[in-house]
């Protein structure tokens, strides 16, 4: 190889290395579940990754949207089926069911009590802390449309996007979780 070719090769390798090292700074999650315990896991991991200096994106889709709902969300302006879905789904971190031992809503109250006793931060607090540390939350526009969820029904300061938004973030990350 000529000296120029070696230089070019070196430059190319440096660029590729920079990209690989850059990817180490990112983490992407899909929050599909609207279960309280799974959302806790997602936001604890997100906060931990933010503390470790990572850029974190959480793509929130389907039942996961329940976590982002404002407690004040109403069925106003929605069609009959959308009104029904709005009525039947919990609104916001304080109202979510647990994936196990839900016992028709008694389970989460029990877990809130037990977690409070052990000084475990509430889900709402974990969401707020993640936002404060710069988490990027992307709500799935398609599942919002299906269930008649409007942008103003969800918490402020989030983005809206589709599968490419998730994939673009995931391809730039070295860790992707589906929760």
């Amino acid at each position: 190889m000529s000296a120029d070719a070696v230089q070019d090769k070196l430059k190319e390798l440096e660029e590729r290395l920079a990209k690989v090292e850059g990817n180490r700074a990112n983490m992407t999650m899909v929050l599909f579940s609207g279960d309280f315990d799974k959302a806790m896991a997602a936001f604890i991991i997100a906060n931990g990754a933010l503390a470790m200096g990572k850029e974190v994106t959480i793509f929130v889709t389907f039942w996961g949207l329940d976590v982002l709902k404002k407690p004040t969300m109403t069925g106003a302006g929605k069609n009959v089926l959308e009104k029904m879905v709005t009525m039947m789904r919990p609104k916001g971190p304080a109202k979510l069911p647990t994936s196990k031992m839900n016992f028709a809503g008694i389970g989460p109250k029990l877990f809130h009590y037990m977690m409070g006793k052990k000084n475990v931060t509430s889900l709402q607090n974990l969401v707020d802390t993640a936002v404060e540390f710069g988490v990027r939350i992307v709500a799935c526009q398609m599942s919002m449309d299906v269930m008649g969820i409007k942008r103003e029904d969800l918490m402020d300061g989030i983005e809206f996007g589709g599968v490419a938004a998730f994939l673009g973030s995931s391809f730039d990350s070295n860790t992707t979780l589906f929760i």
């Binding site: 931990g48 503390a51 052990k118 540390f133």
Partner: peptide
């Protein structure tokens, strides 16, 4: 003291 995961490490990081 009294805090549990992930708050201690968040506080250190902040």
């Amino acid at each position: 003291k009294g805090m549990s995961c992930p708050m201690p490490i968040m506080k250190v990081a902040a």
